[in-house]
Amino acid sequence: MAAPVLVAGVRGGRFARSLIWTGSAILAVAVLAAVFAPLLSSWGATEIDPAGTLAAPGAGHLLGTDTNGMDVWSRVLHAARIDLGIAVVAVALAVVAGTLLGLLAGYLGGWIDDVLMRIVDIFQAFPTFILALAVAALLGDGFLNLALTIALVNAPAYARLVRAEVRTLRELPYVEAARTAGASTFGILWRHLLPNSLTPVRVLAPLNCGWAMLTLAGLSFLGLGITVPTAEWGSMISLGTSDVVAGRWWTSVPPGLALLVCVLGFSLLGEGLQERADAKRR
């Protein structure tokens, strides 16, 4: 029983690498599909085929058409731009804002810390999707507003993570040495604490991107996010709801599958990074 523990480290390394590679490969394909969407489809994302609505998959339309007579394949590809775009922008915003707040709260302590952490507490007293719903209702739809909504809901997690990290780091001898050597607060934060407190952030960010995509699609599914005719996976699934009950699979299943695969890509990447971080700690 003792041997497997030793081996697990080695195997964990290889396993982590294969997770990271698979995740990255999936995401690379998704990004390529998003970039070259117009070349990969003969119909526009919002182009209506006058010949027919709800056409079954076949020669004219690879994945058929939806209730509006728009080509499902083309829309699935084009939607990657919006879904990936908003998710990545939102998580980037959340990381920057959350990290900054966490750094300040963790290093300065005192009442600033108290106030910031109480706000974080209130944010975390709700299931995240419920919070996203409320904020989306407040800010309205559109690319930037949705990115802001998702960023706002996610930022507290980073603030908490970075704060915890900073609180342990700031007591370490090297920080004290820097302080004694006359480094400014800003210098200590920027040069010493920030780089070292980012390790857990690096693991959380990819996982969060996947979660952001699910949130965005969920909001759109309920009519609070991106709306038809713009191509977006959640609203496409929503549009196809009645088709599903009637047994027509091609309007809702493909966009959901695309979403699932992208989120899985982020999950694999995050999981691999987590595994690697754990292995290093051991």
């Binding site: 969920g218 299943v253 959901g256 979403l259």
Partner: peptide, 23 residues
């Protein structure tokens, strides 16, 4: 469990309806 973690629930519900009810 990784796939389960990545699945959009509302879509999963629809797929289950497609299979369990429609088909």
């Amino acid at each position: 469990s990784l796939i389960g973690n990545s699945i959009p629930e509302f879509w999963l519900g629809l797929v289950l309806v497609l299979v369990g009810y429609a088909a």
